[in-house]
Design a protein around this nucleic acid. Structure first.
Lengths: 157, 157
DNA sequence: ATAATTCCTAGTAATTTACTCCGATTTAAT
DNA sequence: ATTAAATCGGAGTAAATTACTAGGAATTAT
């Protein structure tokens, strides 16, 4: 039931990237330093986000990453799904949308009671993450930065 | 981000227990048979629920388990928390309620942006599981049982 | 050329999960 | 009194997952 470091670090990293991208392409090294995340691990995470179409890259010296679309069009759900695969609390084949229950591959799904429980939990999570946009977090981040003056000590969570 | 078999099996087991408890104390063996769950594993799960005060037990031959309070007063949240420990997506010390941020043990929590994201996800999950009561699932279970006539093939999820 | 960077894959130690196993205790039934 | 059926309790373990590290190839500004 826990988000892994992939999701936690990755979201922080992308916020950091978004805050700094006006200065040009952002390298993993700079993010890793500011956010105190292992650089090689972070590379993997950002590449997952690239694969998902959230960031673009510039190779070679002076290169780095940038958002592939406006921060207002990237949801926390997009980010977490890129990093964690699917973020459902229970991946029940009977819940995959579109398909009729039986076709989805779960023999007993017609008589399954817990199915509705899992659906409610999954929907609640999806709703929460899909309605928070990256730009909100970037704005909040700038406010906190101004208040404290200094670059903040990053949190592990 | 996934619920483990503890939560999934355990909830199914407790629904099964609630459906059958009018016939007297329900043994782990009978639940295990109906739900196709390993008996010794199931014992552990039910004991966790007993420890949490959700079920009571009768020892000795002919013994078994019964609900410790009405099914209408047991939420899915109670059950999942008994089985999985805490069900937060992120266990962030800065989010423990009551405590002021800094006292909670996270140095950078004052400047932490992701904190609010984790809180929204955690709250969404809590709200979902705390508003589904066991008796609703028991009723639904009975309806499905009548419709199909036979005892259903249990689902792995 | 060189240095800085992204890209890609493989490996690995630690942790967690999903169990099993064994033995002790309690109690109904014979 | 024995036996069998059940809860209780803890220890052990194989498999999977997590959270990384390591090493190198490809690309590009200087």
């Amino acid at each position: 039931m826990k988000l892994t470091t992939r999701g936690r670090y990755g979201l922080r990293a992308l916020i950091d990237l978004a805050v700094h991208e006006k200065e040009g392409a952002v390298s993993t090294q700079s993010i890793a330093q500011r956010q105190q995340i292992s650089e090689s691990y972070l590379e993997q995470l950002i590449r997952s986000m690239k694969k998902a179409g959230l960031v673009g890259s510039v190779r070679g010296a002076g290169g780095g990453y940038h958002l592939a679309r406006p921060a207002s069009e990237i949801s926390v759900g997009d980010i977490l799904r890129a990093l964690e695969g699917d973020i459902d609390a229970v991946s029940c084949p009977a819940l995959k949308d579109g398909e009729p229950d039986v076709a989805a591959g779960c023999a007993g799904s017609d008589w399954c009671v817990t199915k509705y429980v899992w659906k409610r939990i999954n929907d609640a999570i999806s709703d929460a993450v899909d309605t928070i946009m990256l730009d909100q977090l970037v704005n909040e981040s700038r406010v906190l930065l101004e208040e404290s003056g200094a670059e903040a000590v990053p949190c592990r969570n």
